[in-house]
Every structure is written in C-alpha cells, then in structure tokens.
Simulated assay, not measured.
Amino acid sequence: MATALQGFRLATRSCKCRSAAPNCATRPIGNRRQRPFSATAFQWLEKEKDDIDPALSAALEKAAKGPDGQHGQYLQSELRKERVAKTFMNEGEDEAVDGFPDYDDDEGEDIPTLAHGELEHHREMRHYARLAAWEMPMLATLAKPFVPPSADMPLRFRYTTYMGEQHPAEKKVCLEFCTEDMHDLSPVQREKLKRLAGVRYNPETDIVKMSCEMFETQAQNKRYLGDLVDELLREAKDPTDTFEDVPLDTRHHTFKTKPKFPKEWVMTEERQKALAEYREKAAALDEHRMLQGQVVDGVQRIEEAYAKPQQVAETLTDIDALPRTGRAKGRTVAVRR
C-alpha cells in the first residue's frame, strides 16, 4: 500500500509547494492499521504520551507481552491515534477520510469568495421574492383613490428614485408651475414674475421650471424650492417696481419651427370627386389597351423566358446527333504566350 502510493503522494505534495520529507521520513509505516487496498489515504494525528492514562498504558504493555501480544500492540497503537475531523468533503462516510494527508484542519473547509457572492445574491433574490409573495399584497389595504390636483395646487414636483440603490441624483427635486395658474396675480404682476424667473421661463409653454440638489435629502430640497416660489410671488406682488420698462428676454430659448400640413393638400370633397373621375378614366384606358393587345402580359413573358433554354438545349442535341465527316483540313497556327 505504502509503496504503491508513495510516488502519488510525493507528486501531490510537490504540487502544493510543501515539504514532504518530514511527513514521509518520520512517520512509521508499521503502526498503521491494516486495511484493504484503497487509493485514498488516511490521515493520523499523533497524540502526546502524557495524554494517555498511565494505568491503562501499563495494562496495554502487559497485554502486549502476553500470549495475545499482537492484539495488545494494536490497541496501544490505536490509542495514540486520532482520525481527521469530519467536514463537508467527507460527510456521510463511515470513516473521516482526507484525500491529501498533509492538509491543515481548517484548510479546504470554505468556498471561494465568488461563490460567497453568488450565495449572497441568491439570498437577496429570495428576500425580495418573499416580500413580493407575503407583504406586497398587504399594501392593497393602504391604497387610496387618485384625486387630480385642484386649482389651488399649481405646483408640480418631480422626484427620482433608483429602487433602493444609492445614487447622487436621487436627492434632486424638480419644480414646475404655469404662470396662468397663479390666479391671485394680476396681468402686470404675472409679467413681472416672468421677468424674475429669467432663463427658467419657457415662453412657448408658459411654464417656469427649476430644480435643487444642494441638500442631502429630497425633503430639504423640496422645502427650499417651496420657499423660493414664495419669495418670487412676494416680489411679484411688490408695487414698488413693476418692471414694465424692462423687456422680456427670451434669448435663452430656441424657438423651433414645426412644419405644418399645407392647406392646399387638405382632402376636400371636390378633390375626392376629381380623384374618383381620374381613376375611372385610367381604368377605361387600360381596358381599351388590353383589348388591342398593347398591354404586356407579365406571366406570359416569364413562361416564354423559361421555355427558351429548353429550345436551345433541343437544338444542341440535334447538332450532336448529326453524322460527322472526315477531319477538316486546315493549318495549325502556333500561339505565343
């Protein structure tokens, strides 16, 4: 057994870049348990002699010297040996077996880091699956009917969420409102509000749009935008200066010309009647040409094109069938290349 597996063990230990000399030289072979041939080696851990009960050791030595000395030697050697602790690599085996005898106790009992990552991902997916199966149906009890915003709620806030993931843009809050929805403002005050909004005013849609992401939370940014709108309305209502002498600056906005459908192309009843008459005349002209044979029949032309190769093949067959006479007389001309 030891001789047959000596080369295999040395090759295995050399691949692991470990010293094999102490394990092979200092470990006696005679103390090992006799068992059938196997390609898997047992690993034994030697115990200290002080751990053995002296009385039991003396009894075993006395039994070894008696008539049944072989059994006493076997029991004494077995007392000083301990098998390898069972791990998930040898779970379910009758005896704890380790394929590499010089492995450490804690080595090889864990999975790689990538495998731990896959297990963590699997746990996360199972967590959300449990939430979807057991907790999300309970949210139906908290559902409220949709109520459209009334006239006294002109402000529209927009938030951004990344479904639980942290992102720098998640704290950003956008605010939009139309100047026409501010019913407590007069036309002069509304024009002043447009001038105060500056580049945030869209002259085409009459909407003021602003955003804030200075603070860490969405609530703080929303509160800041609300205070800013209150300050704008307060300044617009100030009768000290109405800004009527200041023109509205729209250079920040690019007016895009949208193509419109020409009025001349609009389908009217007269155009529909003219198109119907034109189609009737075209159909009558095609029928007249077909009767005179002036219309080309595409199907007939295709059939004629397919029939031509057959006629050529039949002609070549007839030429090959003609009797051949003697060799034609002539002069051979050399060709230079």
Rank of each mutant, 00 (worst) to 15 (best):
D227G: 11
I207R: 00
R234D: 03
K222W: 01
Q218M: 07
Q218I: 02
V208I: 15
R223Y: 02
R195A: 04
E231R: 13
L225V: 05
M214V: 12
M210R: 02
Q218A: 06
G198N: 12
R200P: 00
E231F: 08
Q220G: 09
E231L: 13
D230M: 12
R223H: 06
L225Y: 04
C212D: 05
S211R: 12
R195N: 03
G226S: 12
M210I: 05
A197F: 14
R223L: 03
A219R: 05
D230P: 01
M214S: 15
E231I: 02
A219P: 06
D206T: 06
V199R: 10
L228M: 12
N202L: 07
G198D: 04
F215P: 03
D206W: 07
D206R: 12
T205E: 04
F215D: 13
Y224E: 10
R234P: 00
M214F: 12
E231N: 13
E213P: 01
T217N: 04
V229M: 09
L228Y: 13
Q220R: 08
P203L: 08
M214T: 10
A219Y: 02
R195D: 02
K209D: 00
A197W: 11
A219Q: 11
V229P: 03
E204M: 08
D206N: 15
R234F: 13
N221A: 05
Q220L: 12
M210C: 07
E235D: 11
A236Y: 06
E213R: 09
L225M: 12
T205F: 06
Y224F: 15
N221V: 04
R200N: 12
Q220W: 02
L225D: 08
V229L: 07
E204K: 08
M214H: 13
E216R: 12
G226P: 05
I207M: 06
G226Y: 02
G198M: 08
V199W: 00
Q218V: 05
G226E: 11
K209Y: 00
K194I: 10
K194E: 08
E213T: 06
S211N: 10
C212V: 02
L228V: 11
D230C: 09
K222I: 00
